[in-house]
Simulated scan of single mutants.
Amino acid sequence: MFGCSRKAPFIHQRLYDIYLPACIQDSFAVSAAYCTKTSATEDMVFRTFESKVGLLVQQDYKEANLQELLAALQALILFHIIQLFDGDIRQRSLAEQNMDTLRAWTVQLKVRATELPPPFTWQEWIFEESVRRTVIFSLMLDGLFSTLKKGYCSNVKGLNILPFASKI
């Protein structure tokens, strides 16, 4: 998990070397707190978690630049992983309420990324690859959760258009 190891398969380890967005800082801090929670701290961790998720999904990323949208979606995915699979029914319910936001941001990121010019620098490649991995991971998370919950994948159309090629 991101907070325990500072790694996530959809976030390139060099992506935030230059600029670390607040939502990524929040997701790291909350993930780290989650990794070290005890029965005595669980309530505080989940209250902090809910607060940070609430602040994140209240933001309007329609006019945000692509870097901000990517960071917001990555943070939301990290929060979703914990909320959906922790086993706490309240957390799962809250994540399910934000599933439409996750889907909308994923589609928005995928569509807007098609306008990117071919990467010229290493940092541009890292960014484009992070976008691709994030879109894939988000759609797969959505598909996995629907399969576990309903017994079938309700996101086949989205999974069918996954950007496995190097260009979104």
Rank of each mutant, 00 (worst) to 15 (best):
K167S: 10
L144M: 12
G143L: 04
I11Y: 03
T134F: 01
L76A: 06
A22C: 01
A165F: 06
A40P: 00
I136M: 12
T101G: 04
E128T: 09
K157M: 12
T38E: 05
Y19K: 12
K110L: 07
I136V: 13
F49L: 05
T48G: 06
A113D: 05
F145Y: 15
E115N: 12
Q97P: 01
N98L: 00
F127Q: 04
R92F: 07
V30K: 05
F46N: 03
A165H: 10
S130V: 03
V45M: 04
T36K: 10
A33Y: 02
N155Y: 09
R90I: 13
L139C: 14
S39W: 05
K52D: 05
N155P: 01
I24C: 02
I11D: 04
L73A: 05
V53G: 01
G87R: 01
L56R: 00
V156Q: 14
I136T: 10
K110Y: 09
R6N: 13
W125R: 10
A165Y: 07
L141R: 07
A40I: 00
V53H: 01
P119E: 01
F79C: 02
K157Y: 12
I161P: 02
L102V: 08
Q97D: 15
C4F: 07
I161Q: 13
H12V: 05
R47D: 15
L148F: 09
F127G: 04
R103W: 07
K62L: 12
A75F: 00
Y16H: 06
G158D: 11
T101Y: 05
F145G: 07
P163T: 07
D86N: 04
V107H: 06
L78Y: 03
S5H: 11
G3E: 07
L141Q: 11
L15K: 03
K157A: 15
C153A: 11
T36C: 07
L66N: 03
A71K: 00
L116A: 04
Q83G: 15
A64T: 02
A32I: 00
M99K: 11
F120E: 15
M44S: 14
L148Y: 08
Q74E: 13
S130I: 02
A29M: 07
K150A: 13
T36H: 08
F46S: 00
T114I: 04
D100Q: 12
Q13M: 09
A33Q: 11
